[in-house]
């Protein structure tokens, strides 16, 4: 048994992948569908943009198979902003990921928001130079994705609903399991790993360090500055906002407000001022009305 942590034994590029994830902490990553929206996001103070053809709420309404975006759109967005540009590939779609790497996107999101291409396996992400972010609902799923090479984890929430309840549930589940692991004696760790379906060495590492080996962000359902601040309060280091910005009545103001809220999440009087007079947020969906088939967060293995 090696006496170094799993993280310390990873290849050289792991440091640059993880390094970019570290630099993205304490901010807001916004979904954008055009170069004009990307400019608005950058102007508002987004630390990165996620380039995709349809925001999750439109994918939800319009249905059909959701795939990787047209490279033309991704390149237009890359040309229009100086901040990092991320893009999504379908779960298990190795070739979409290779195409995104060839386009030199800064991060690939192997995302449950798109229709999965593989119902059993995710991409082996260590094979890529470009870093990956993946979604999770609990610690087991997070550590499986990290084992495959994800350099950044986001809890999934329920994308496109404008309803933060699933994001809260997933973050609370993840953080509770991490806290539990730090109190678990060594001889129980293998069974713990078996029960949550996670790589043993990563379970060992988390039990020692009390945190994931990669940054831990939040996604799925954030609609207001208060929602974004709530996710930071619960442990998210950065917040992804998808439909919440460009489906709000005044996207520019909402974008500015959410950026300011994430930086001031521990300051209620500032949050009160930030939340004032923003206009209508995304309408939102009661997730209890969704069938399992309509829940994007159940995708991922």
């Amino acid at each position: 048994m090696s006496d170094t942590l799993w993280s310390q034994r990873q290849k050289a590029t792991w440091k640059t992948k993880l390094g970019l994830a570290e630099m993205l902490k304490g901010g807001v990553i916004m979904d954008v569908t055009t170069a004009a929206e990307a400019k608005i996001a950058e102007e508002a103070g987004a630390i990165a943009v996620m380039a995709l053809e349809r925001v999750p709420s439109d994918i939800r309404i319009q249905g059909g198979v959701a795939r990787m975006s047209d490279p033309k759109m991704i390149q237009e967005i890359q040309a229009s902003v100086s901040i990092p540009v991320m893009a999504k590939c379908r779960i298990g779609h190795i070739v979409e990921a290779q195409i995104l790497e060839a386009l030199k996107v800064d991060f690939i999101d192997e995302s449950e928001v798109l229709t999965p291409a593989d119902d059993q396996f995710h991409i082996y992400k260590h094979d890529f130079q470009v870093p990956f972010v993946c979604g999770c609902r609990d610690l087991g799923e997070a550590l499986r994705r990290i084992g495959e090479g994800a350099a950044l984890i986001r809890t999934k929430g329920e994308a496109g609903t404008g309803n933060v309840i699933e994001a809260v549930r997933h973050m609370r589940t993840l953080m509770d399991q991490i806290r539990q692991l730090t109190r678990t004696p060594k001889e129980e760790l293998m069974t713990f790993a078996k029960n949550i379906g996670a790589p043993f060495e990563l379970v060992m590492e988390v039990s020692q360090t009390g945190k994931l080996p990669v940054p831990n962000f939040s996604a799925g359902g954030v609609a207001t500055p208060a929602d974004a601040a709530l996710m930071r309060h619960l442990g998210a280091e950065t917040v992804f906002v998808g439909s919440g910005i460009f489906k709000a009545a005044d996207p520019k103001r909402m974008a500015h407000a959410i950026v300011e809220a994430v930086a001031n999440y521990q300051n209620p009087s500032r949050l009160a001022a930030i939340s004032t007079g923003l206009g209508q947020a995304i309408a939102g969906v009661d997730v209890r009305q969704l069938t399992d088939g309509q829940k994007l967060s159940l995708r991922g293995w």
Binding site: M23, G27, G45, I83
Partner: peptide
Amino acid sequence: LPGGESTT
């Protein structure tokens, strides 16, 4: 002054 996004 750490790294990150200088615009942000």
